[in-house]
Design a protein around this nucleic acid. Structure first.
Length: 291
DNA sequence: CCACGTTCCTGGAAGC
DNA sequence: TGCTTCCAGGAACGTG
């Protein structure tokens, strides 16, 4: 599932293959992929031709292309991969994918850019840019740990202030962005913290170590090209990541904890799977069944 | 503002 | 074999 490292790999692919090119035409099939584009898919398609792609940017799991129009105005084409979205850079004569939802043609010809998404949680929309070149509609998304705007101390304070399970807070993109279920579990394992402990019950240094663990695991994954499980995530050139070989906890139910050998356990939390080492990451007393 | 459950979606896997 | 059910989860949204 695309989390920060996977989305960054895609961003780099866009920077290499799309930035500097001029859109010739756009296609959007179906309405769902552009559901966040309020004026509708026809408007989206009509506004793209002639736009020059100036840069490919990212905050957390959100991607956007900065577009410059004739006359110098700028706007953002915001892209979100959801669970299963892929951006593919391909020749025009490559056969259409089964779940192809949108396509950009460029004035210089091949390759074209395709948005393919099986589970349709992803989408794209046009948006105004604020002064710092961040789209307006993602103003509520917090900086991610790999960007200069990330404020570690402020993030520690926000987590400490919340009476909520710390895994839920890690997954809250308005607190810190880019972390999904996989890297949340990996960060919690590295920091030896159970995800159901309350943010307010952790010490500030422990919260800091947890954030640093998240930063570290995502940086390592990025170095290896991202994580992939079922081939739904493919980078902009179609090559899968392989960080899944390095996961210590996520998806490792029954396998020995790499640190202490205790079998990794799986539990359901927030209607999601959580994987943890019961010895390194003891379940908080308040969450244990009484008696 | 905060906490947190529900909802959207598809198709492979698991269960019967 | 074939049908049904489960499961994966990002993030907007509604409720209290």
């Amino acid at each position: 599932m695309p989390e920060l490292p996977e989305v960054e790999v895609v961003r780099r692919g866009l920077a290499d293959h799309v930035v500097g090119r001029t859109v010739a035409a756009a296609e959007v099939t179906g309405t769902r992929v552009a559901r966040r584009h309020v004026p509708g898919p026809e408007d989206l398609v009509a506004r793209l031709p002639g736009a020059v792609v100036e840069s490919a940017r990212r905050r957390g799991k959100y991607l956007w292309l900065v577009l410059r129009h004739d006359g110098g105005s700028r706007e953002a084409l915001v892209l979100h991969l959801g669970m299963s979205g892929q951006l593919l850079v391909e020749a025009a004569d490559a056969p259409d994918e089964r779940h192809l939802h949108a396509r950009l043609h460029f004035r210089d010809g091949d390759p074209q850019l395709r948005f393919v998404d099986q589970r349709t949680f992803g989408g794209l929309h046009l948006d105004e840019l604020t002064d710092d070149l961040v789209p307006q509609t993602i103003g509520h998304i917090a900086p991610d740990p790999l960007e200069p705007a990330y404020d570690r101390a402020a993030t520690v304070r926000r987590i400490k202030a919340r009476d909520s399970a710390v895994k839920r807070i890690l997954l809250d993109q308005t607190v810190v962005s880019g972390i999904g279920n996989i890297y949340a579990d990996e960060a919690l394992w590295r920091a030896r913290i159970h995800g159901e402990r309350l943010g307010s019950a952790l010490t500030r240094p422990a919260i800091g170590r947890l954030l640093d663990a998240a930063t570290e695991v995502m940086t390592e994954a990025l170095g290896q090209g991202g994580t992939s499980f079922d081939a739904l995530y493919v980078n902009v050139n179609g090559a899968s990541g392989y960080f899944d070989r390095s996961l210590a906890a996520y998806g490792q139910e029954g396998k020995p904890c790499p640190r202490c050998g205790t079998p990794i356990r799986r539990s359901t939390f927030m209607n999601r799977s959580s994987f943890f080492c019961p010895r390194c990451q003891p379940v908080p007393r308040s969450r244990r069944p009484s008696g």
